[in-house]
Computed example of a mutant assay.
Amino acid sequence: MTAATTTAVTTAEPAARFRDLLAAEWLKLWSLRSTVWAYAIGALVVVGFNVGATYDRYRYWSAHNAADRASFVSDGIALMYAYTTNAGTLMMLAAGAIGAAAITGEYGTGLIRTTFAAVPARRSVMAAKVCVLTTVMTGYGAVVAALSFWLSQAILARRDAGVSLSDPGSLRVVVASTLLAPVCGLVGMALGTLLRHGAAATVTVVVVLLVVPLVFADDRHWAAVIDHALPSSAWMRLVDTRYGSGIGLPYPWTEGGAWTVFALWALGAAAVAVLAVHRRDQ
């Protein structure tokens, strides 16, 4: 008597390559029409604020006395119109909300479960999301910063008050304003990964990036330490000419310190986004 034996041959699916994950996340990012509108409207509003403030100064140029007009360029005031504080605030809000939506949208629809079922290596998936978001937000920030600088200085040039990219401080302003977008976008993604809810993540982005800096003024040492550790304050240190000399500031700080804060927030937010999903119920 012979027994029939059946040998099952199982062919394992090849593991997803990281470049495949990058391609998948790129497609996800641009699969929704709302993504394009969010970037477009955000850019128009930010550039519009900068251009509007610059044109207001151009229009009422003759209302300032000769001494103020003469010191406009020498004191670096022209650079403050290249990317105004209001525009920076709007960019932080927009970038943070976009970063949060990049992950909370998947949690809201349940797509994240399908993604992790197809690719069990959760940290690799999140690393791909971080890479794609960082790349897109950096390019986005560069376009907005370059347009703002070019348009604002072109308007001021009609009063012989504009500066060029080669002038001292100009490149720093453009680079810092460019990096504001990816830093805040990564903060938004990290908060979205932790909270997994769109509205909660957006509100927390507003609190962390916009409200907390209002609480900790830099008039006392302990408050200044906290204030200088925030991304919004780091950006202000890099673009606001008042900080250059430290005149009138009780606790001035260096450009290197501001760049370090930028880097630590970006790296920390990326690490949170990648590591928070490991062994966590989705």
Rank of each mutant, 00 (worst) to 15 (best):
A217W: 05
A128D: 04
S34M: 14
A95R: 05
A276D: 09
M1N: 08
V203P: 00
L275C: 11
R57L: 04
A224T: 08
G188D: 09
E106K: 06
L275P: 07
V125L: 09
T178Y: 14
C184W: 08
A273C: 08
V9L: 10
M189K: 08
F49S: 04
S152Y: 03
D75N: 14
S34W: 14
I103M: 02
A78Y: 03
A12E: 02
G96P: 03
L249M: 12
S232W: 11
M91I: 06
S152F: 02
G76F: 12
F216E: 02
L275I: 09
T114Q: 12
T7F: 12
P231C: 09
G248I: 13
A3E: 09
R123N: 11
M189D: 01
I98W: 05
R69K: 07
T138V: 12
G42H: 10
F262M: 11
M137E: 08
A82Y: 02
P14A: 13
T104F: 04
V208R: 05
A258M: 10
I155P: 01
H278G: 02
H221I: 13
R242D: 13
H221Y: 15
V143A: 15
A263I: 13
A273F: 08
T5K: 10
I98V: 14
V215H: 00
P250Y: 13
I98M: 12
A271V: 04
A234R: 09
